[in-house]
Design a binder for these strands. Sequence first.
DNA 1: AAGCAGACCAACCGCGGTGCA
DNA 2: ATGCACCGCGGTTGGTCTGCT
Length: 256
Amino acid sequence: MGRSPCCEKAHTNKGAWTKEEDERLIAYIRAHGEGCWRSLPKAAGLLRCGKSCRLRWINYLRPDLKRGNFTEEEDELIIKLHSLLGNKWSLIAGRLPGRTDNEIKNYWNTHIRRKLLNRGIDPATHRPLNEPAQDATTISFAAAPSKQEPRDDAIAAALGYKNENNPTTTAATVQERCPDLNLELRISPPCQQQHQPDASMGMVEENHCFACSLGLQNSKECSCRRGASGGSSAHGGYDFLGLKTSVLDFRTLEMK
DNA sequence: AAGCAGACCAACCGCGGTGCA
DNA sequence: ATGCACCGCGGTTGGTCTGCT
């Protein structure tokens, strides 16, 4: 029944990683790639659990990590994304190439929270500190969702989907509430102007995989037309919340 | 120089969703 | 159909660093 345990906790190291452990992990992932964290520690000769290896790699060893201080632009982007997504650090990190969810979470708690408080803004609600709580003036996900404005509706609206039960909840509504975001809410890439995305997430247009339908051609998610066109310039990226994007996992968004 | 407090951040913990056996 | 392990995520902890007294 079930699977065998991922590791024997009694025989695993904990705490800070040593240089040697880092080197072993890097060497193994370079040779075999990411994935299968369960078997990785043993295969790499590490006395760590797979979970610990994954965390170390994702948060510290990955070669595409930026490290270093956050820029003012990143600060503002994090604030705006947090006002929309709440504490969905992995989603926010997805909008900031080279940054990890853990890094952003730490940065939020140590820097941005204080920054917002200094501005007189409640970091949890993104409202002025002295403003009494009121319903549905923003789509802050940090606040408890009301019946009228559930989070899913706000996300759907931000993604340009109409709510069956509330057809008036649209992207325009979101922009009205967040005028500073200068939203251009569009989910289809510019080159597919003849196709409008269906209201149902499941609808994938003909000749396109799901990734393509989300404007993710040429990404690792794309399983069709691979190599057929010449790079991202053909599509010019796509905009989400008025931001030039790399990859956003809408499937994850939908599930939350 | 020593002690203390606050800031910072890597790592751990616990939970929920998913999928294997 | 069910139980259980895996994976990924958000929250929290604790060690280290830095600045102040």
